[in-house]
Write a protein that binds this DNA or RNA. Structure first.
Lengths: 150, 150
DNA sequence: ATATTAGGTTCGTATTGCGAACTTAATGGG
DNA sequence: CCCATTAAGTTCGCAATACGAACCTAATAT
């Protein structure tokens, strides 16, 4: 009950509200992505996997780590995605134990399509903002994501 | 192949890059949330449900719609969460068919705890940005989320 | 009064997710 | 070099998640 976040927000740590805002934004974005994924018979997890693979060729363990999942879970996801022709496995060149995962051309085509649908579906949300804010938001998010890697 | 997004970004629609940035940010945020949820034996879906219930008292169908899930799926999620004492159902006052869902006090306590953990886990990401950008990012996201309701 | 629609649940089945146990390859002493 | 340990993946068994289909009840329309 009571006034919830507002009273808290103004008081203490400066990034409290930002963490909340990021989480809330992610929930909204997830709902949009989930709906689009469902139209193609894909789960949110599988979408996340394919999203990672868009510009990377990780090994199984890295992939699991990116998603915060266990490696057995990844085995299952990749096995099913492989059966559907969306991804493929290949032995890693340096480590005989490791397995690399990557998108097939079919997987790429699907992702291109999903990306377009995602942009259309997110447009209403984005267009709530004036163009200058859109620009600014994009720059800040990209900066944040880029800095994370280092 | 090729240069991917960069060449595309400068050319066509202005919100293309922003939709990508929002999606990428959500993926990162989801991985963080997922890890914290897993520590408490909660799925990402259930976390999303509880997150919605933090400041709302929706009926089943609304809840399903917020998450982009089917209503049967919501029945299962809520039934299990109810058994764990995190949420409760109550008949809707206006519509005899509808069922309202809300957090129990135990559910509230859990969410408070998760919120703190979420802030800590997201801090490294957030602190990549200078304080001025943090402030700006928070304002823009809040504006975007707020405008969405209208 | 009856037909239709809307809100939820139940059932069956496929997917997702994890702990436990296993196989194979890399690594580290001795 | 040999053996122990660790690391990468897989398989198995089980619980949770997700959805289509079918159902029940309450609201709405005709």
């Amino acid at each position: 009950m009571m006034k919830k976040q507002i009273s808290i927000k103004q008081a203490s740590m400066p990034d409290e509200g930002l963490a909340d805002a990021l989480t809330a934004t992610s929930f909204v974005t997830m709902a949009v992505i989930n709906r689009i994924a469902a139209e193609h018979g894909l789960s949110l997890s599988l979408i996340r996997v394919l999203g990672i693979l868009w510009d990377r060729r990780p090994r199984m363990a890295e992939l699991a780590d990116y998603l915060g999942l266990e490696k057995q879970t990844m085995s299952g996801l990749i096995t099913r995605a492989e059966k559907r022709g969306l991804v493929a496995r290949a032995p890693n060149a340096e480590d005989g134990r490791a397995t690399d995962v990557f998108l097939t051309s079919e997987g790429y085509e699907l992702m291109k399509q999903l990306r377009v649908q995602g942009q259309q579906a997110l447009a209403p949300l984005i267009e709530q903002l004036p163009a200058s804010d859109q620009q600014l938001l994009q720059e800040i998010l990209q900066r944040m994501l880029e800095a994370r890697k280092g």
